[in-house]
């Protein structure tokens, strides 16, 4: 069985976890100011890289905490897990850093998402 390293609990079986999709998506500061195109892209459009992907995971049948992980979508290997709010040490390996050019501003809370 695939083991995933929860930042709180260490290596645990994958069936205890739930994936929450792409990580580090910054919510626009002022959604009302966006046009429909930008808003729908924020809501629905996610990267689907062949390679390293930053994802949110929840140790739902364990400590219940959310955290982030870098996973290689080709090998299904977890390269790194790190707490929510932190940045990965090997961020340069991410295939497509998904930072929309139009919405780079964010509050402190949003940036830590």
């Amino acid at each position: 069985m695939l083991l995933i390293a929860c930042p709180h609990c260490g290596n645990r079986p994958e069936t205890e976890f739930r994936c929450g999709g792409q990580a580090h998506i910054v919510r626009p500061v002022d959604p009302a100011a966006l046009d429909d195109q930008s808003w729908s892209e924020h809501l629905f459009v996610r990267s689907n890289p062949r390679g390293v992907h930053a994802e949110r995971w929840c140790h739902s049948h364990g400590c219940g905490r959310w955290f982030n992980a870098l996973r290689d979508t080709v090998s299904d290997r977890f390269l790194e897990t790190y707490p929510a709010g932190a940045q990965p040490t090997r961020s340069s390996e991410i295939t497509s850093p998904e930072v929309p050019a139009t919405v780079t501003q964010s509050t402190v809370t949003q940036a830590r998402a």
Partner: peptide, 10 residues
């Protein structure tokens, strides 16, 4: 002590 799974039950 930990929360985990047994079969299909938490």
């Amino acid at each position: 002590a930990t929360r985990t799974l047994l079969g299909k039950a938490e």
